[in-house]
Design a protein around this nucleic acid. Structure first.
Length: 100
DNA sequence: CCGATGACTCACG
DNA sequence: CCGTGAGCCATCG
């Protein structure tokens, strides 16, 4: 299982209406220092991967143009506060058995 | 092989 | 809040 595959598996596990950060995904994948590569992998991910649910640390959107991602997130109920996702309420925390 | 690149992050001013 | 700079590291040309 390579890095990208793990990333896709993790992102697919994020429920609609929630988001995770690049660094968080990298850590969950077992590679805490590869936040940048999460983005690289998402750039060419399969269609069934909800890439819009991955944002930068602090809730910032790094995708250009950002409007596209913001639109998809709003559509699933995520509240955007002036170009930033309200992580306080929408960051997903994997439960103990999320990946067992 | 090597340097440039980048959907990152953090510290500082 | 904004810009800078420095670590980071796989991928690309």
């Amino acid at each position: 299982m390579d890095f990208a595959e793990r990333v896709y598996g993790i992102v697919r596990a994020v429920p609609a209406g929630f988001v995770v950060t690049y660094g968080q995904v990298a850590a969950l994948a077992g590679f805490p220092r590869r936040a940048r590569h999460v983005g690289q992998a998402l750039g060419k991910c399969p269609a069934d991967v909800p890439w819009q649910r991955v944002v930068g640390a602090g809730g910032s959107v790094r995708v250009q143009p950002a409007e596209r991602q913001l639109e998809l997130l709003r559509a699933e109920g995520v509240v955007i506060l002036s170009t930033r996702v309200d992580l306080r309420r929408f960051q997903w925390r994997p439960g103990p058995l999320a990946f067992a």
